[in-house]
Amino acid sequence: MMRKLDQRGAAAMEFGLVIAPLFVLMFVIFDFGRYAITMQSLRNLASAAARQNMIQCYTPAVVAGTSPSTCTADYLTDTQKQDAAPFLYGAGLTPTMGTTAGATALTVTASLPAGSFSMIMPIWGSTLNTPSASTQIPF
């Protein structure tokens, strides 16, 4: 006569084996989603700042090929920045803006200060903790 195997606890054991990778996958997706939204918001902010820079600085002399090296100010108001990147300001982050003049282009950069954005999962290290996006304006 064959004895029936004891199956008590098998479902709990299977659940325990499946739930850990499921939670890790869920947090990885959440982390990359936050990072993607943050990067897209920074790109929008850099593009809006570059557009405002072109409106303020591009004179006939610039169009003729003269470098607009004096146009490195931040021409966006706080309200315009919040309109361009509502996710950043809604999450309590404060992006910084910078414009540098190169030989053939102005580069407008929007970035988050170090330590203001951090990933939930510690496995990424600090590589993704300082997101930054830039837009070049050729002249």
Rank of each mutant, 00 (worst) to 15 (best):
K4T: 13
A61C: 08
R43T: 15
R34Y: 09
M119P: 02
T96L: 11
L42V: 06
Q7T: 15
I37H: 11
N44V: 07
A64D: 08
A12M: 15
I19V: 15
M121Y: 01
A64L: 06
P113N: 06
T104V: 08
Y35F: 14
W124K: 07
Q136Y: 02
D78T: 14
S111C: 03
T104I: 05
A73K: 12
K81R: 10
I37E: 11
T94H: 08
Y35D: 10
S134T: 04
E14H: 08
R34A: 09
S134D: 04
M121V: 13
G92Y: 06
S118N: 11
A85F: 00
P86G: 01
A73C: 03
L22A: 15
F117D: 03
R51V: 09
N129S: 13
M26Q: 10
S132R: 10
I55S: 12
R34C: 10
F30P: 07
M97R: 01
P21Y: 04
T109C: 04
T59Q: 10
G90Y: 01
S111Y: 03
T94I: 08
F30S: 14
L93T: 05
M13K: 09
V18R: 07
F32G: 10
V24D: 07
V18W: 12
T107W: 02
T100W: 01
S126R: 08
P113Y: 06
A50Y: 05
M1N: 12
R51T: 11
A91P: 03
A84P: 02
A84S: 06
I123Y: 05
G9E: 06
R8Y: 01
P21D: 07
R8G: 02
N129G: 08
S134N: 07
R3S: 05
M54D: 12
S47M: 12
M54L: 14
D6P: 00
A84I: 01
A110V: 00
C71G: 05
L17S: 05
G125D: 00
A73F: 07
A48H: 02
K81P: 03
A36S: 15
G16P: 11
A49R: 11
P86H: 04
S69W: 09
M119A: 05
D31V: 05
V24S: 07
I123G: 07
Y58A: 14
T70C: 09
M54V: 12
S134P: 02
Q56H: 14
T77D: 03
A50S: 08
T72A: 07
Q136L: 09
T79H: 08
V108T: 05
L22N: 11
K81G: 04
F15C: 11
D78G: 12
A10H: 12
A36C: 10
T59N: 14
L106W: 03
P21S: 07
P138E: 03
V28T: 14
T77Y: 04
R3K: 14
M26W: 10
A49N: 13
R34E: 11
T109A: 06
I29D: 09
